[in-house]
Design a protein around this nucleic acid. Structure first.
Length: 261
DNA sequence: ATGCCTAAGCCCCTTAGA
């Protein structure tokens, strides 16, 4: 079973590219981030025409996540991250959606960017990561194959960025961001792409600016984290890099993992 | 030290992204 994740940067602007990618790579599950559309504007019929059923959590202008499944309806299990307590500030961003597809629990995340740091946006990012960790503890306890995939907006290590110095002040690679990500791995989750490419040098994002794509100035922030029951069945994982070079591309490339289920 | 693109909104500038 192939599970893919793609930060599409606008579902309407990206629709032809997105349909093309789905038909060419045919993932069983496709998690989308930065849909940038309200619920009523989500083009579910376009996906249905090519055999994909969908659930989505939209928002005006930015954010927005969706889960598509080939030939089956994803069964929604959670929308938004549960708050950690009465003092936890309410979170109205559309950044988390979770569903069962053919016995696999799939969570689609769009983790906050956090820039500029320090500041309230960075605080929001770190708080969101704590809520995510709590949810992942619950997912872990299910003891079923589970994949938490999406745009984590964290560069885990220096080997995951073309020039660490160029990004030193960015929220994506602050020690607090990295520590929070490392805690997820410390809990036992498997970073599929890193496991198969331990030396690094794998990018999933290239900025639109300053010729970053042409110069291969990228970094890795789109991750696929697997529970032990899924990691035991890890066959391969990778980046559909060529889609970043196509006409009207997103600034992210799709990532995917193949499980023997 | 700054801007370099791109998408969306109520839309010819601002916000957000990373």
């Amino acid at each position: 079973m192939r599970i893919a994740s793609f930060n599409i940067n606008g579902v309407k602007a990206r629709l032809p590219r997105l349909l093309e990618w789905l038909q060419e790579t045919r993932p069983k599950v496709a998690c989308l981030q930065e849909v940038k559309s309200q619920d009523e504007g989500f083009p579910a019929e376009e996906f249905a025409k090519i055999g994909y059923h969908a659930i989505w959590h939209g928002q005006k202008s930015f954010n927005g996540v969706a889960i598509l499944a080939d030939g089956v309806q994803p069964i929604e299990t959670q929308r938004g991250l549960p708050l950690l307590g009465p003092d936890d500030p309410d979170d109205d961003h559309a950044r988390y959606l979770e569903a069962d597809v053919d016995g696999v629990r799939v969570a689609c995340i769009y983790l906050p960017n956090g820039n500029p740091q320090p500041g309230p946006k960075f605080d929001y990012k770190l708080a969101w990561m704590e809520r995510l960790r709590a949810r992942m503890h619950d997912l872990w306890a299910l003891e079923i194959p589970c994949a938490v995939v999406g745009d984590y907006n964290v560069i885990p290590e220096d080997k995951d960025v073309w020039a660490p110095a160029a990004m030193a002040e960015d929220a994506l690679m602050q020690p607090q961001s990295r520590d929070a990500y490392a805690r997820l791995l410390g809990d036992g989750w498997t970073d599929a792409i890193d496991t198969l490419n331990p030396r690094g040098g794998v990018w999933t994002y290239w900025d639109y600016q300053a010729g970053a794509w042409q110069r291969d100035h990228g970094f890795r922030i789109d991750h696929l984290l697997l529970s032990p029951e899924a990691a035991d069945r890890l066959v391969s994982a990778g980046v559909d890099k060529e889609y970043r070079g196509r006409e009207k591309a997103s600034d992210h490339a799709p990532v995917w993992v193949e499980l023997s289920l």
